[in-house]
Simulated assay, not measured.
Amino acid sequence: MSQKDPVTIYYLQMTSPEQIRGKPRPEGLEVMEAEVKEFRFNRYLYQLVGEAWQWADRLKLPDADWQRYAEREQLRTWVAYHRGSIAGYYELEQQAGGDVQIAYFGLAPKFIGRGYGGYLLTHALESAWSWGTPKRSGCTPAPWTTRARWTTIAPAVWRFTAPSGSRCAVIDEYSHHA
Score class of each variant (00 low, 15 high):
P143H: 03
D172A: 10
D172H: 13
G97E: 02
K110M: 11
E126H: 06
I102F: 09
L45D: 01
S164A: 15
A128F: 08
S16P: 05
G84F: 10
W66I: 01
G113T: 06
A169E: 13
G138M: 04
R43K: 10
C168W: 14
S2D: 15
A80S: 03
T146I: 13
G113K: 02
H82M: 10
Y119C: 04
D57S: 09
P24Y: 01
F39I: 02
Y104P: 05
L120Y: 05
F105I: 00
Y44L: 11
S127V: 06
Y44H: 08
G22H: 03
W131E: 01
G117D: 00
R136L: 03
P26W: 08
G117P: 00
Q94P: 04
L29P: 04
R149S: 09
W150S: 00
R149D: 10
P134F: 12
A178R: 06
G115I: 12
E51L: 08
T145S: 12
T133K: 14
K4H: 14
F105Q: 00
T161V: 14
A103R: 12
A80N: 02
E51G: 11
G28D: 02
E27H: 14
A70K: 01
D172G: 01
E18A: 15
I171E: 13
W129T: 01
G132H: 07
L59H: 04
R136P: 04
F160G: 00
I9K: 03
E73P: 12
Q19I: 00
